[in-house]
Design a protein around this nucleic acid. Structure first.
Lengths: 201, 201
DNA sequence: ATGATTCTTGACTGACCGGTCAACTATAGC
DNA sequence: GCTATAGTTGACCGGTCAGTCAAGAATCAT
């Protein structure tokens, strides 16, 4: 019943892009509407507030990354290859950002976290959930690698903690340097240190 | 000649605190002036713009951290102790932030970087400089540790890269979890992996 | 004391902010 | 083809934004 529209998805996609480019606070609802070619009234038909849209944008981004994550979890690949594939996915995204307008924008979740975690408790908790999910995914791969003998015996959750921190830290430094290579170099170096090749026996 | 005032320092200190709490964009010049008990006219007597103030606040913060850095470089301490002291300094700051209002605010430089690096080229370059300085400081300690035989032979600049990424990544996750312990745990774990104790010969 | 200089004040500007609303239009089910 | 519903529109709200300005007050060198 009634008419139908892709307005909701268009607004979410547009907002995700604009937030990544300029941050939550610096992007106005009017900016989002203009870029999505919709009026403000439509915006508030779909969302109760700018924060509501943001929460839904996080949902969408989490789903997208989860899908990519699953792809890299192909059974044939070694644990090390899977970790490399994840790093490579993020690196390619940074390069694409640069190709678009010459700026490395970083991670939507990390960006939102540093800008908003101290300002909205609900948003902070949601971002924490996303990180928890990623950590769990990384831990699964590390556990696999340990079982297969690729990595030495260790606590996979702890290793995943460190890997996630490395990824987010590399994002901060790559965005600051405006250079995706910084991300790639840090991740490669970090992987080598956190999960060294086992010396052949 | 003329009257003198601590207005400039007061505005810088106030802005630094407010930016750390809420971010650059969400803090208005009026907010800063109100908290510093000065009028907007005085603000624009000392600074040409909000960004100008921000640049000067970065200068001040960099000096402060450099001083703390030097303290931890006491000749008596081992390289590992020096690295621990730096991590401990940041951890104590996070705990203090929490004690104040229950929120871990993170690193002023990292926060500004993710919020502003894509929006102002000058600011981005300045933040990159700050990170470069910190990286150089960390590399100096690692080099010392290698010379003293505390750490295995390796490229100290690369190790410093990874350490800095770990620090910033740990800040992102600690702020998102609103828990300084997350920072401490990650840094401890990271240090152990990046710079393992040399197996006694 | 006086005049140059530094700082302070408060009123002001035009643009923009997030959010609201009532009227309107297109569509789907009957 | 009617009607309930979903989506659209543009005008509108009070408040806030970064930044300006002219005039005055405090302080210094002389």
């Amino acid at each position: 019943m009634g008419r139908c529209s892709d307005g909701r998805q268009k607004l979410i996609a547009t907002a995700t892009r604009l937030f990544l480019e300029r941050g939550f606070t610096a992007v106005s609802v009017a900016d989002i509407c203009a870029a999505a070619d919709l009026k403000k009234g439509s915006f508030y038909h779909f969302f109760t507030s700018k924060l509501d849209l943001t929460m839904q944008a996080i949902d969408a981004y989490e789903s997208e990354i989860t899908a990519l994550f699953r792809e890299s979890l192909r059974p044939g690949a070694s644990a090390r290859e899977q970790l490399k594939a994840i790093a490579e996915t993020f690196r390619v995204r940074l390069v694409e950002q640069c190709a678009g307008d010459g700026n490395a924008r970083g991670c939507p979740i990390g960006n939102l976290a540093l800008e908003m975690a101290g300002r909205d408790a609900q948003l902070r908790l949601r971002l924490e959930q996303v990180f928890d999910g990623w950590r769990a995914g990384l831990a699964r791969i590390v556990r696999l690698g340990i079982e297969r003998g690729e990595f030495g015996p260790q606590d996979p959750d702890r290793a995943a903690d460190v890997l996630l921190a490395m990824i987010q830290g590399a994002m901060v430094l790559a965005k600051t340097a405006n250079d995706p290579d910084v991300f790639a170099r840090l991740l490669e170096q970090g992987r080598a240190l956190v999960l060294p090749e086992r010396a052949p026996a």
